[in-house]
Design a protein around this nucleic acid. Structure first.
Lengths: 150, 150
DNA sequence: ATAATTCGGATAGTTATTGTCCTAATATAA
DNA sequence: TTATATTAGGACAATAACTATCCGAATTAT
């Protein structure tokens, strides 16, 4: 039970966007190069982020991506949900197997509470906070040594 | 990001054990039959539960399984951890990919908090509570209509 | 001894994740 | 209008993880 590596790519990519000038449009290849991510898979990740409304995409020449919201509006929950979708942590009623307990299954209720608690923590963390913390420890972070406009 | 079906098998199996007379040793095949689970996979699940100290196993004739702790001592967290192990929800430092942020990675810290919150909720739910609730709604539950000794 | 059972390893089947590639759609610029 | 740059989306391949099965070894009761 782990968040997929796509989530990591997404967070790193979004952090990169957040470090740019606001309204600066960045090429996918630049994001991938700066963060050392496989560009073809990152493309899929960014499509999900765009669908979820976290980034704006621009096609054609001079196209690319920028944040669709300010960094303090984007939470870790938004990101994980954009990438992983909304499947519950525990879903005995899904296609996987018929649950004899029907809808009011006590087990499911317990997991639902746990899941809410998890998401509520992820909701507390914004891209801005992560970026600020990252800048503070920048000297230790090779991958964030990119030009940041002021 | 979902708990594996092995967790579901484990919970159902443990609930079945919890419904027996205390100290009653039950055959794996009986558990599987009663809960309609694939016995060969359930065997693996129960091996994990035994290693985690949630059930006691007895080999040989008249062997089988019983709970190693009272139902109010076994939490949902114990079960999921026994089956899924202790891999963190987010592990950029693992084998998957070198994380440029090193150990103090801010992202990882955020996920660690979230994970703790998740586990803390799962810890609140015991086998006994689930069993009691299940008994209350027993009429709706085909699979729990098994003899319970008093 | 024999029968009953779990243990552990090997392995196969299935599904999910990760990654690549190609074409279509779109936008800019000459 | 044409050429070029770029994302969108579908198809597909590779890899990894999960699920399931089987078999022989170890263990225990009779």
């Amino acid at each position: 039970m782990q968040f997929s590596i796509g989530c990591e790519y997404a967070i790193h990519g979004l952090l990169y966007l957040a470090m740019q000038r606001p309204d600066e449009v960045v090429l996918l290849t630049d994001v991938a190069k700066a963060q050392n991510l496989p560009v073809s898979y990152l493309a899929k990740v960014f499509q999900l982020l765009a669908k979820a409304g976290l980034v704006k995409s621009f096609r054609g020449a001079h196209g690319g991506y920028m944040l669709a919201q300010t960094p303090d509006q984007i939470t870790l929950r938004d990101v994980t949900q954009a990438i992983e979708g909304t499947t519950p942590l525990y879903s005995p009623l899904s296609s996987r197997r018929e649950c004899g307990l029907a809808a009011d299954c006590v087990i499911k209720e317990a997991f639902t509470r746990a899941e809410k608690s998890l998401f509520s923590e992820l909701e507390k963390v914004t891209l801005k906070e992560m970026m600020d913390q990252a800048i503070r420890m920048r000297s230790r972070m090779k991958w964030l040594q990119v030009p940041v406009a002021g």
